[in-house]
Computed example of a mutant assay.
Amino acid sequence: MTMYAALLRGINVSGHKRVPMAELRTLLTELGHGDVRTHLQSGNAVFSSPSDDENLLAAELERAIEKRFGFPVPCLVRDGAYLAAVAAACPFPAAELEGRQLHVTYFGQPVDAARFERIEAADHLPEEFRLGDRALYLYAPDGLGRSRLADALSRPSLAPGITATSRNWNTVLKLVELTAAGEATHPGAGA
């Protein structure tokens, strides 16, 4: 069994696309997953599965959510090892920053750095971003809500047709912790 995190995009924001976490847990259990837990109300769930196909797991979850709730919700599924690797590869001094100052945007597929060349980094200082493995790290010292760089990075033209969803650093670390804790309950999981 491998531990995964499901990252749902754009739910429970200002009363739109409401997906209660208890119902999401039930749905994941009905799909045959174990060790199901959720974190916060913003679409973070962890679960175990014998599958090794993240894209298949995400597609199944998307279909099930649309059938149950009546609206589409883009989902990304990533295993615990990937989440830990993304956290470990952070190019910013995460331990010195507040969780609201650092964010990771997870992409559904690799994104070419050339897509971001037209963003003038100097125009957004002290805010900065770096690309990683299907992830973008954003340092926004005044938080995401006031970030001009976040607005520039979120333009659909930069990653057309690619599912993307962001989490603050506190959530990034919590998902690493939750998927690692699940791995510990399943010796040899993910092997």
Rank of each mutant, 00 (worst) to 15 (best):
S49L: 04
P74R: 04
L76C: 13
A85V: 02
T163H: 00
L76W: 05
P126E: 07
Y4H: 09
L24I: 11
L178V: 02
V36G: 08
A5P: 01
A159L: 07
R63L: 03
P74K: 14
A164W: 03
T171H: 06
G161W: 08
E54W: 09
L175C: 05
S48R: 12
E66S: 12
G99I: 01
R134Y: 05
V73C: 11
I65E: 05
S154H: 11
Y106P: 01
A6Y: 08
L24R: 02
G70V: 12
V13L: 15
H186T: 06
I11N: 04
G32A: 14
L178T: 03
F71D: 01
Q109F: 03
I119K: 04
V111P: 02
L153V: 10
E177N: 02
L138M: 14
R118W: 07
F71A: 08
G34T: 01
A152S: 12
A135Y: 11
A122Y: 06
T165P: 13
L83G: 04
D53K: 10
A5Q: 00
A95G: 06
E60D: 14
A150W: 15
L40F: 08
L61M: 11
G32M: 15
R167E: 02
L178Y: 03
F69G: 12
G34D: 14
L24T: 02
A94W: 01
R68L: 12
R134T: 07
E127W: 05
R148H: 10
E177P: 01
G15L: 00
F107T: 01
P141R: 07
L8C: 03
V104I: 06
G10Y: 08
S14A: 15
S147L: 03
P74V: 04
T26P: 05
F107H: 13
P50W: 02
L144D: 01
S49W: 11
Y139N: 05
R115M: 00
A95Q: 14
R63E: 15
L7I: 02
T171W: 01
A5R: 01
P50K: 11
E183H: 09
R18M: 13
D123M: 11
P72Y: 01
S48F: 11
T105H: 04
R130C: 09
S154N: 15
H39V: 02
Q101D: 09
I119M: 09
R9K: 06
R134F: 06
A121R: 15
R155W: 12
S147N: 13
E62R: 12
T26Q: 10
A45Q: 13
R9P: 08
D53W: 00
G132D: 03
A121K: 10
A159D: 10
G34S: 15
P110A: 06
S157K: 13
